[in-house]
Design a protein around this nucleic acid. Structure first.
Length: 213
DNA sequence: TAAGTGATACGC
DNA sequence: CGTATCACTTAC
């Protein structure tokens, strides 16, 4: 065995270990930048590099769904780390989160944008709009609802384990951008959350075209 | 800038 | 039960 673990074949395709998610949620949100979201369906493989995330800090965080306590919807966030928390919003879009911290600590990281890496053509096909148009370029995956559409992520993947290599949705390692390329700002769409709305819990890769908005 | 869309949470 | 709301996106 002359090769280092990093150089060994297959490492990049292995899911992140659960220990990566079982940490401070802000640390996880930063760590996931540069990692690869991998979606395997019966017919194809879709991959995208995560370029934008948001941290949601549990029951004390008025912007977090778990601020209203344990409900059927928020149940996955109360479970073990490394699972998906997927929910439907505005009746037509889904949002994907990775559950963080330990059981009973309902925190998560929202994946807001990815840069397509594999299966871009299929992503475009998955993103047909009401008027029949199929977006391309940054419009494919530069938002939480868009990327779920492109990656065929819906409620059937709620609570799915992101840390098992055989599973249909996993997150694999990548090279994290240097600290000076990671920018922070307020989270999007939670103006109701009082003082929590302004906290710098959104993270993105500076200058990346696929960052939302 | 407004409308689309339906599960969810909460009040009655 | 009813209904206001929503970690969004598209099209007018």
């Amino acid at each position: 065995m002359a090769r280092t673990p990093q150089a060994a074949s297959g490492v990049m395709r292995d899911p992140l270990p659960r220990s990566v998610f079982e940490r401070d949620t802000v640390d996880v949100a930063r760590s996931l930048l540069g990692c690869t979201l991998v979606r395997r369906t019966a017919t194809h493989v879709l991959e995208g590099i995560i370029v934008e995330t948001e941290a949601y800090l549990g029951e004390r965080d008025l912007g977090c769904h778990s601020a209203r306590g344990r409900t059927p919807r928020t149940e996955p966030m109360y479970g073990p780390p490394g699972r998906a928390y997927v929910y439907l919003i505005y009746g037509m879009y889904h949002c994907l989160n990775a559950v963080t911290r330990g059981e009973g600590e309902p925190e998560a990281v929202l994946v807001r944008a990815v840069r397509p890496k594999r299966g871009e053509k299929q992503m475009s096909a998955n993103r047909v709009t009401r008027s029949g148009r199929t977006p391309d370029g940054v419009a494919l995956t530069n938002g939480p609802g868009k990327l779920c559409q492109a990656f065929e992520i819906d409620l059937s993947l709620n609570n799915a384990d992101l840390c098992k290599s055989e599973n249909p949705l996993i997150i694999t390692g990548g090279h994290q951008p240097p600290d000076e390329k990671i920018r922070t700002g307020p989270r999007v769409g939670i103006d109701y959350a009082g003082e929590w709305a302004a906290k710098p819990l959104r993270f993105w890769v500076d200058g990346d075209r696929y960052v939302s908005r």
